[in-house]
């Protein structure tokens, strides 16, 4: 007969009564040992798949190692970092990436929040609408890139066909300097606006109704309610969504690869696309590792700034 299971109903802070070991458990395996045994596979996997590659990349970043040449790595210390930080090629890609991140995330935030706000005001069909809006987010970026590539084709694409039927001229969406980056921003916005919308919708539905009721009693205007109730309460959650999207956009590779290959010329080459070229065209593994480490540092610094701002918001 098994012992009855005691469930603690005490409040936090109360000392829980000691639970006797289950019958049949070997005396050698303590709770602690059991915990280690359960955690070890995940820990080993984490070490092998994440921690080791990161440390290995850090080590390689100080060397001139090339994965294909097979020579032993020779230390160049900060040579790779200096070269990257002073390279005009890298500065150009950084500017392109910055424009892209600001453009795409800004547009997505604006549209995402607007859609979420409109959906949150509906009482019927909200679930269906939300699901429909989420469809683009569920598609693979490669698939999205491929069908947008067809749609944006200057000769055969449906976008130009529609423009033509409106009496407007053909636009070279993917092969002109001005339009290529805009096209990337539009495609990314199409796919990832639902993400911002989803987070914003969660924030909007969590706003206590009584605040709005109180504001209505005080005859507050729609704009006043939005400015003083909705936005301040949703803002921290929205910022987290923006942070996630900014990190994702900063690492953009797949859409560039499929849609423009970085062209025309290198005008849509982002930092990630450039790292790929450094790593796999010339197999300059040491330089590519330093490049990658620098990108990780940028993301960490940006994240820290965001988190501090969020903490300050909470304190306020």
């Amino acid at each position: 007969m098994s012992s009855p299971v005691h469930l603690s109903t005490g409040r936090p802070g109360q000392e829980a009564p000691a639970t006797p070991p289950a019958p049949g458990r070997t005396s050698r395996l303590s709770d602690r040992g059991l915990a280690v045994a359960f955690i070890s596979p995940a820990l080993l996997l984490l070490l092998a798949m994440s921690v080791f590659p990161l440390l290995w990349a850090l080590y390689l970043s100080f060397t001139d190692y090339s994965a294909t040449r097979g020579d032993a790595p020779q230390f160049v210390w900060f040579g790779n970092y200096t070269a990257i930080l002073t390279s005009a090629q890298v500065h150009l890609r950084a500017l392109t990436t910055l424009i892209y991140v600001v453009g795409a995330v800004g547009l997505q935030t604006l549209l995402g929040f607007t859609i979420a706000y409109l959906i949150s005001r509906r009482t019927r069909g909200r679930g269906l609408l939300t699901t429909l809006f989420l469809v683009p987010m569920m598609l693979s970026p490669v698939v999205v890139g491929l069908f947008w590539r067809f749609m944006l084709d200057a000769q055969f694409g449906v976008i130009n066909s529609m423009l033509g039927s409106l009496g407007l001229g053909q636009v070279e969406w993917l092969t002109r300097q001005r339009t290529a980056l805009i096209s990337l921003i539009v495609v990314d916005t199409w796919q990832w606006t639902p993400f911002i919308m989803l987070i914003a919708l969660a924030g909007l539905t969590a706003v206590p109704k009584y605040l709005y009721e109180a504001a209505s009693i005080d005859r507050a205007s729609e704009w006043f309610r939005f400015r003083t109730i909705t936005l301040p309460l949703v803002w921290p959650l929205l910022l987290i969504a923006v942070l996630f999207r900014a990190i994702e956009a900063f690492r953009l590779f797949d859409l560039v690869y499929i849609l423009t290959s970085g062209g025309p010329g290198v005008s849509t080459e982002t930092l990630s696309f450039h790292v790929y070229k450094v790593a796999f065209l010339g197999f300059n593994t040491g330089t590519a590792s330093a490049y990658g480490i620098l990108m990780v540092l940028v993301v960490i610094v940006l994240t820290q700034l965001y988190l501090r701002y969020l903490s300050k918001l909470k304190e306020d």
Partner: peptide, 22 residues
């Protein structure tokens, strides 16, 4: 051995010239 980088430099620049970026 440097072929992949040489061809990338040429590809991107010729493409830039053909598309009015240079």
């Amino acid at each position: 051995p440097e072929y992949a980088r040489l061809v990338d430099i040429e590809n991107t620049n010729v493409n830039a010239a053909l598309n009015g970026a240079k």
